[in-house]
Design a protein around this nucleic acid. Structure first.
Lengths: 239, 239
DNA sequence: AATTGAAAGTGTCATCGTGACAACATCCTC
DNA sequence: GAGGATGTTGTCACGATGACACTTTCAATT
C-alpha cells in the first residue's frame, strides 16, 4: 500500500492529549444441547492471529456504549435481540500490544429460540464465529479469559439472586429443562423437589396449560410471568 | 494566548479513527458527624462552572484505571488510602458538551480515622473540595447525580451482603456506632438486639477488650477481624 | 449521698426459608 | 403388560430472622 497515495483521502484526528482507543467486547451466553456456551470469533489478524476472542470492536464517534455492543455483535456474528448488561471495564496499559485500549465488557444472554432462528456466522473483520462449551474453551486472545471468568461468575451470581435463567430458554419450557440450565451454569446438581419448590414459590413462572410430549411421561410447560420479565428489564440498565 | 507561538511546543496526537476522551470519576463516601457524606469539588471552569461535581480526570497514557482513580483523588482533593472498587462506565455521546467522554466511575470508602488525619482541600484544577451530606446534595454537574445514585445503591447493597461497614469507621468502634453507620446508609432504623446478634454471628468483629468512656455507661470497643478485612480485599478487584 | 438522664447491654418466641430425603404416576416401547 | 425413563409430589428438622421490653452502668445534678 502506498502511503502517499492514500494519505489525502484519510481523515486524521488530532488531540492535545493522548487518548486511548475504546472498545466494547461482548460475552454472549446461550444454552444449547445441554451445554452453556459462549460465542467466540477467530481472529483474522495479528495480534493473536488465529486465536479465539470475544466479539467486539471500537465504539462509534457518536454512539452509546450499549448501542455499540449491540452493533458489534450484529456486525461480527449476525446475532441480535439479546439481553445485554454492562459487566466491567478493563484498561491495563499493556493489555493490547498495539496501542492503549480500554474495553467495556458487556454480558449478554440469548434465548434458545433466538439461537435456533438466527444464523450465527463470522462477518466483517471477524474470520469465523462459533459457540464454545464454557467448560471446554480454547486458549483466548488478550485478557479475554479473565473477562469470561468474571462474566461466568456474574451469571452464576445473578442466577441465584434474580430469576435470570429464563432468558436462556425458549418461551415455553419444562421445569426439568429449567433445572438443567441451573445445574449447568452453577456446575452442581440440584435437588429436584427443592428446586421446584423454590422456583414456584418465587412466583416468576406459571403453567401455560400445554404439555410437552416425548418418549416418556409428558411434562407440564411453563412460561415466565410478565412481571418477572419486566422486573429484569427494569433492573437491567444503569442507573 | 498566541496559538502560533505555543504551537511548536505542544505535542499533538494523531489517530486514524476518532477516539473518545477517557476519564475516571470517584464517589468517595465517609461517615462523619452521624452523616454519610460524599466528596465533591466545585468546578472552576466551564462547562458547569461553579457547579459541584465528582472528583476525577483524564487517565494517563500509560496508567491503569485503578491507579488513575487513586491519582486523581490525591491530586484534586489530597485524599489517599481509600478502599476503591470499580462501579460503572458511562458513555452517552452528549454527556459532556465539549467532546466525547467515557467515564469509568469508581466507588471509594474512607475510614473515619483517615478523614480526621487527612486535610481535604481542592487542588490543581479543582477549585474547592468539601464533604456533602448524601441527603442534602447541591445540584451536580454532568450526569453525576445519576452516578451518585447508583453508587449509593451499590453501597447499600454491599452493606447488606458483605461486611463493608467497617471501612467507614475507625479501627476501634462500639456496636452503637456501627449500627448508626448502617442506619444512616440504609436510611432506616434497625432493631438494636437483632443488629447485634446478626453482626456478632457473622464473626467479622471481635472485642478489643477496651471500653469507650463517655457521659454514660461505657461501651465495649470492637475491631474487625483480620479475616473480614482480607475477605473484602480479596473480593475487591476484578477479576 | 441520692436521684435522674442517657446510652449500653441482654433473651424469647413465632415464623419462614431451606436442605435432606423416597415413593408413586404416567407415558412410551417392546 | 412389563420395563424403562422421566415427571410429580410432601415431610421434617434446623437455622436465620423479625418483633418485642427491661435491667445495668456511668456521669451529672441536686
Amino acid at each position: 500500500m502506498n502511503e502517499s497515495l492514500t494519505e489525502p483521502k484519510k481523515q486524521r484526528y488530532q488531540y492535545d492529549h493522548p487518548r486511548p482507543a475504546v472498545t466494547v467486547d461482548i460475552i454472549l451466553f446461550v444454552f444449547q444441547e445441554d451445554q452453556l456456551r459462549v460465542l467466540l470469533i477467530k481472529r483474522a489478524n495479528d495480534p493473536f492471529k488465529a486465536k479465539w476472542a470475544l466479539p467486539g470492536g471500537f465504539i462509534g464517534e457518536n454512539e452509546d456504549l450499549y448501542d455499540a455492543a449491540l452493533r458489534e455483535l450484529k456486525e461480527e456474528t449476525n446475532v441480535s435481540n439479546v439481553y445485554l448488561e454492562q459487566l466491567y471495564t478493563v484498561g491495563k496499559p499493556d493489555r493490547d500490544p498495539r496501542t492503549r485500549v480500554i474495553t467495556v465488557a458487556y454480558f449478554a444472554l440469548l434465548s434458545a429460540e433466538e439461537v435456533a432462528q438466527q444464523e450465527v456466522h463470522g462477518a466483517s473483520d471477524a474470520g469465523e464465529a462459533r459457540w464454545w462449551d464454557i467448560y471446554a474453551l480454547p486458549e483466548l486472545a488478550f485478557d479475554h479469559q479473565a473477562i469470561l471468568d468474571y462474566a461466568l461468575q456474574r451469571l452464576r451470581w445473578k442466577l441465584e439472586w434474580t430469576a435470570l435463567g429464563f432468558l436462556l430458554l425458549p418461551s415455553e419450557f419444562t421445569l426439568s429443562e429449567l433445572q438443567r440450565v441451573y445445574e449447568t451454569i452453577l456446575h452442581e446438581p440440584l435437588d429436584k423437589r427443592n428446586f421446584r419448590r423454590k422456583v414456584l414459590a418465587a412466583g416468576v413462572i406459571e403453567p401455560t396449560g400445554n404439555m410437552r410430549a416425548g418418549d416418556h411421561r409428558p411434562a407440564r410447560l411453563y412460561r415466565f410471568t410478565a412481571t418477572a420479565v419486566e422486573m429484569e428489564q427494569a433492573r437491567r440498565r444503569f442507573p
